[in-house]
Amino acid sequence: MTPRLFDYYRSSASYRVRIALNLKGIAYESVPVNLLEGAQKEPAYREVNPQGLVPLLEVDGLRIPQSLAIIAYLDATRPEPPLLPSDPADAAHVRSMALTVACDIHPLNNQRVLKYLTGPLGQDEAEKNRWIARWITEGFAALEAMAAPRAGRFLLGDTPTLADLCLVPQMYNARRFHVPLDDFPLLTRVDAEAAANEAFAAAHPDRVAPAA
């Protein structure tokens, strides 16, 4: 049965999973969940994913939420190409970089947090954008330094890993919110390298956006 990805085109977490599926050559059906219209809160979707979040992947008779859990499952069951190095030290380094994005940057800037800032907390658009820029800039500064000693074409060496799957969607977000990237030449270079890879390019929100 063809895997089904419950997806929102601008979701960073969904974007990571689309890249992983593409890199591994896994055909899948996209099931759009429009976060702006609140589709994730509808009872029918809550039955599929009690968290009411995206992504969720239906695969092998399972329903797997959370992007890093999905990618770990795909890497374990469809191991080529691997997204984590076989060397434990290298794998720990990749996980550390991936989690810098997935745990320390992205959650502070996701839609739920931003809506709370501009809703109950009463912050205006300018303050929201300062909030976004602060956490992306702080996280990217750490990631640039972490990657520098061992980076190649990608964040570790010359092949994509889980860390790159997390970086690329966050770079998209940074540009979307006009966060300056001049201080992050390594991250910018890796992002450009990824953009030349069709598996990454085909997962870009502009390529998967619903028709107007």
Results as ranks from 00 to 15, higher is better:
N129W: 01
N129H: 15
R130T: 10
W131A: 07
A133E: 15
R134C: 10
R134Q: 13
W135F: 15
W135E: 07
W135Y: 15
I136F: 12
T137V: 05
T137N: 02
E138D: 15
E138K: 12
E138F: 12
G139S: 06
G139K: 03
F140M: 03
A141L: 09
L143F: 02
E144W: 02
E144S: 03
E144L: 07
E144N: 04
A145C: 02
M146C: 01
A147P: 07
A147Q: 09
A147R: 05
A148W: 01
A148K: 09
A148N: 02
A148I: 02
A148D: 03
R150G: 00
R150C: 01
R150K: 13
R150S: 04
R150P: 01
R150I: 01
R150A: 12
A151L: 01
A151V: 08
A151D: 02
G152L: 05
R153K: 10
F154C: 12
F154K: 04
F154D: 11
F154V: 10
F154H: 14
F154P: 03
L155S: 03
L155F: 08
L156V: 08
L156C: 04
G157C: 07
G157D: 10
D158Q: 06
D158I: 03
D158P: 05
D158V: 11
D158T: 09
T159V: 14
T159D: 05
T161F: 03
T161I: 05
T161D: 02
T161L: 01
T161E: 05
L162Q: 14
L162E: 15
A163W: 11
A163D: 12
A163L: 11
D164A: 03
L165F: 03
C166A: 14
C166R: 01
V168C: 05
V168R: 01
V168K: 00
Q170M: 14
Q170E: 15
Q170C: 01
Q170K: 00
Q170V: 07
M171I: 15
M171E: 13
M171G: 03
Y172E: 13
Y172F: 14
Y172G: 15
Y172D: 12
N173D: 13
A174E: 12
A174K: 07
A174W: 03
R175A: 13
R175Y: 00
R176M: 08
R176N: 10
F177N: 15
H178R: 12
H178N: 14
V179M: 09
P180Q: 07
P180H: 07
L181A: 09
D182C: 05
D182S: 15
D182P: 05
D183L: 02
D183S: 15
P185L: 06
P185Q: 08
P185C: 09
P185Y: 13
P185M: 09
L186G: 08
L186K: 02
T188I: 10
T188L: 06
R189M: 10
R189Q: 15
V190K: 08
D191T: 13
D191A: 14
D191C: 04
D191L: 01
A192N: 04
A192M: 00
A192K: 09
A192H: 05
E193I: 00
E193C: 10
A194K: 00
